[in-house]
Each structure stands twice: as structure tokens, then as C-alpha cells.
């Protein structure tokens, strides 16, 4: 938007011309500012659209199915003749696969973060950080393939009774997939802790390990908690790994050795079929989506408050 007029005002400027020129210039600036504001506001519009769309379709769904049935029925068979609409089996699949993933991602992510931030020599850190970032860039469907055709056969050698689809192998791979998210955010938080806190600790005779655990980690608590929350919401919303490796049969179970569907896997399963727009089956995926959004939103809000509550000011 370079305008040569502005750089070189006309030589003989009468008062009115000058005013008109300034007015044009002002108008152009206002126009651009409004345009940029609209672009920024688009993100809010997207959120409103997401919520409106999910709520609208779920509203029609809940005219057919009572909220009580939705929350307490133990079967989820919307596509059968004997249709049941209990979200519990999908929630249990989501909870179990996420729990397995977090049992892997949180300890390993935390240890990796502490190691990289407090222990690793400069060279190791410079090499490991981009590598972890690459690990986070691998498409999730590829991780799904890896879980189904590499990890599951491997696990079956140790646990012969493990079925071909299981929450365990999906969760394990999902956990490894989430490590980079957790570790990079936790590491950033720990590195933001000012050096003089560490120096104070060393001066008192503490070792590196003691300093890391008792000084740096508590000081970076809010950031580390936010990293965990991000990991949880990743695990809950992850789709392709579970859709490929955990099977797509809704199954009310708390046993990771069984196959089961998660909320996300159910949405994929329905989308693969050809459900007509406006049918009850079509609306179920929006109701499932709304449940998922509420779950992740809860975690995001908890994360937000944790950050606020424990924010250390240096």
C-alpha cells in the first residue's frame, strides 16, 4: 500500500487540497485498521461458530434423547435398531486411552524437560530440541499405523492375550507422541526461572538434582502444570491413533487390554459411513463433539487458573 503521493506532497498545496490529502490518508488508515480488526475478530467468530454449530445440532439430538439417558445409559448403539444413546462407553474409552498416554507422557516428558533444562550439556540440548520438535511433527495417522502394525505385535509377544486392537497400544503410542509437547513447554518454564535462584541454591551446598527438584521445579510450577494440562487435552482430543489402533467398537471398560472406541473414534466411524444430513445418527456426532469440547474446555480452564494462581513474579 505504498502511495507515492504521501512521500512527496504536491509543491503548490492550497489549503483545501492539503486538507483533502490528509483526509484521504486518514481514511486509508482507518480502512486498513478496520480490515485488520475484522481479521483478528474472525478467530472469535470461529469460536462462536463452533459452539453454535455443536449446540444447535446437539439441541435437536436432545429432543430425541433425554440428557439423563445420555449420561447414564451404559450402551452406545445409535446405529442399531435397538438404539441406545449412553455416552459412558465412549467416555470410558477416552479416559482409559488418555490415562495410559499420560502415564507415559507426563513422567517421561518431565524427566526429559528437567534433563534438558538443568543437566544436559549445550550441544545435547541444541541437538535434542529440534529432534523432539520433529517428533511432534509426524502426522498422527502415521503414529496410528505404527501402533497397529509395530507396537501391537511387539506387545503381543509379552502379553499373548492382547487382542489386535487395544487401548493399551494406542495409549502407549499416543503417550510417546505427546512427550514433545509436554517436555518443550515444561522446559521453557524451567528455563524462565532466573539464574540467581539456582545460584542461591548451589551456594547453600545443594547439588544439581536437589536444585532442580526443590528450587527450579516449584518455581516453574505454573508452567509445568500448564504443560501437563496441554498434554491431557491433546490426549483427550487425539483421533487417528485411537481410530486406527484401538478399534471402533464402543465398549464400557476400564481395562486397557481391551479394544474400545473413544469419542473421537466414534465420530470418525460415523463420518466414514454415509449418514444422511439431518438424521439422528448425524446429530450424534455433534453431541459427541460437544461432550469432547466441554471436556477439553474444562482442562483448558483449569490450566488457565493454575497459571494464574501460582504465577511467580520475579
Amino acid at each position: 500500500m505504498r502511495s507515492p503521493v504521501i512521500a512527496q506532497p504536491p509543491e503548490e498545496v492550497s489549503g483545501s487540497k492539503r486538507l483533502a490529502y490528509r483526509y484521504r490518508r486518514h481514511l486509508g488508515e482507518r480502512f486498513i485498521e478496520t480490515l485488520l480488526f475484522l481479521m483478528a475478530f474472525a478467530s472469535v467468530a470461529i469460536t462462536i461458530a463452533i459452539v453454535a454449530m455443536l449446540v444447535k445440532e446437539s439441541f435437536i439430538f436432545f429432543e430425541h434423547v433425554s440428557l439423563w439417558d445420555f449420561l447414564t445409559d451404559t450402551q452406545w448403539t445409535p446405529l442399531f435398531d435397538d438404539a441406545h444413546y449412553g455416552i459412558l462407553p465412549l467416555v470410558s474409552g477416552t479416559v482409559v486411552s488418555s490415562a495410559v498416554a499420560l502415564l507415559v507422557a507426563i513422567p517421561l516428558g518431565t524427566i526429559t524437560a528437567i534433563y534438558l533444562s538443568e543437566f544436559a550439556p549445550f550441544g545435547v540440548r541444541e541437538a535434542a530440541k529440534p529432534f523432539l520438535e520433529l517428533l511432534g511433527g509426524v502426522p498422527t495417522v502415521v503414529y496410528g499405523y505404527f501402533a497397529l502394525l509395530f507396537v501391537t505385535p511387539l506387545l503381543q509377544k509379552i502379553l499373548p492375550e492382547l487382542p489386535g486392537f487395544s487401548l493399551l497400544s494406542a495409549g502407549l503410542v499416543m503417550g510417546i507422541m505427546i512427550i514433545p509437547y509436554v517436555s518443550s513447554m515444561a522446559e521453557d518454564a524451567m528455563r524462565a526461572v532466573p539464574m540467581n535462584l539456582r545460584e542461591g541454591s548451589y551456594a547453600m551446598g545443594a547439588t544439581r538434582f536437589q536444585t532442580a527438584i526443590r528450587v527450579v521445579m516449584p518455581a516453574a510450577f505454573s508452567g509445568i502444570a500448564a504443560a501437563y494440562i496441554l498434554g491431557i487435552s491433546r490426549a483427550v482430543g487425539e483421533t487417528m491413533v485411537v481410530a486406527v489402533a484401538a478399534g471402533m467398537q464402543p465398549n464400557l471398560t476400564w481395562n486397557p487390554m481391551e479394544p474400545a472406541a473413544t469419542i473421537t473414534a466414534y465420530i470418525v466411524q460415523v463420518s466414514l459411513g454415509d449418514l444422511p444430513h439431518g438424521s439422528i445418527g448425524y446429530q450424534t456426532i455433534f453431541a459427541a463433539g460437544l461432550t469432547l469440547l466441554l471436556l477439553t474446555l474444562t482442562f483448558n480452564i483449569i490450566g488457565h487458573f493454575l497459571r494464574k494462581r501460582y504465577r511467580e513474579v520475579y
Partner: peptide, 27 residues
């Protein structure tokens, strides 16, 4: 309004990708 936009951008980054698919399907 600015604060709402900022919080919103952070939150959008945490929305599961499949939810965007549902929005696109409906919209």
C-alpha cells in the same frame, strides 16, 4: 475486546482438530 480475542486465540489452539471437522461439516 482485545483481551477476549487474545484468550480466544490461545483457546482455539487447544481445540481438538476433529471439532474443526464438525464445524466444517455443518457450516
Amino acid at each position: 475486546i482485545t483481551e477476549i480475542i487474545e484468550i480466544n486465540v490461545t483457546n482455539l489452539a487447544g481445540v481438538p482438530s476433529i471439532i474443526y471437522g464438525l464445524l466444517a461439516l455443518g457450516l
